[in-house]
């Protein structure tokens, strides 16, 4: 997470929650594929699983900085992350890929086209994430909207194990309100924009479920090394 201090006040017209979410956004991570390994599906998947594991550590720390998240009980914090971790990873990939045509930016040094995805056995997932990218590109998704939508995806993860639903509902409401407020100020010309953003969440959920299923089958196959946190969250699903 950024080393600078959190913003104490927002400029006029800026939503405080959105400002804090912008500040909390993790730095980008490099994939660093092992140059000693020959290119193969195993190498591609190993690189992606390692990258995902490192991003997960950052995303857990990020979640703690969502205003209101750390007021939830620890068990509910865990439940939300266990349900939404892949949605968060995918939304970050989709946002990074907005300016790239038909390629997915898993990291600045790991950009995958359809041919490479097919070689890694990831064509179906690649196609699904690109559908999400196209949707956000057509809307010209902004960074402020991306960070808020990502926090909403976490708060709205529909875990079956929430203990204090009222508290989680409160978090959802405050994030929803932040998005409504941002859109009201920044996009008065399109009163339906908040709704359009929220309506992308089912596709994100669907794509995430596809990804989890795929990586669960890779795990069962046993040929790709996976780090413990990534494994732990795959097992939680």
């Amino acid at each position: 997470l950024p080393q600078r201090n959190p913003p104490f006040s927002s400029s006029q017209g800026e939503n405080k929650v959105v400002t804090l979410l912008l500040w909390a956004e993790p730095e980008r991570v490099c994939a660093m594929p092992d140059p000693a390994l020959p290119d193969s599906d195993i190498k591609a998947l190993t690189t992606l699983c390692d990258l995902a594991d490192r991003e997960l550590v950052l995303n857990i720390s990020w979640a703690k900085h969502i205003p209101g998240f750390s007021s939830l009980c620890l068990s509910d914090q865990m439940s939300l992350l266990q349900s939404a971790w892949m949605e968060i990873l995918i939304l970050r990939v989709a946002f990074r890929s907005l300016t790239y045509e038909d390629r997915l930016v898993f990291a600045e040094d790991y950009i995958m086209d359809a041919g490479q995805a097919k070689s890694a056995g990831l064509l179906e997932l690649h196609t699904a994430i690109l559908q999400l990218v196209r949707r956000y590109r057509s809307m010209r998704l902004e960074t402020e909207e991306f960070v808020t939508l990502k926090a909403i995806a976490l708060a709205n993860s529909d875990s079956m194990h929430i203990e204090d639903m009222e508290a989680v509902q409160g978090l959802q409401d405050s994030l929803h309100e932040a998005l409504l407020d941002y859109e009201h100020v920044q996009h008065r010309e399109d009163p339906r924009r908040t709704g359009k953003l929220i309506m992308t969440l089912p596709l994100l959920r669907q794509t995430s479920a596809k990804a989890v299923r795929h990586f669960c089958s890779i795990k069962q196959d046993g040929r790709v090394p996976m780090h413990k946190l990534f494994l732990e969250l795959l097992e939680a699903n």
């Binding site: 209101g68 750390s70 992350l81």
Partner: peptide
């Protein structure tokens, strides 16, 4: 919690949160 010990540990150890 035992089953999800890394997530549990990371949530407990990550830096102090910013709250409203």
């Amino acid at each position: 919690k035992e089953k999800h010990k890394i997530l549990h540990r990371l949530l407990q150890n990550s830096s102090s949160p910013v709250d409203l």
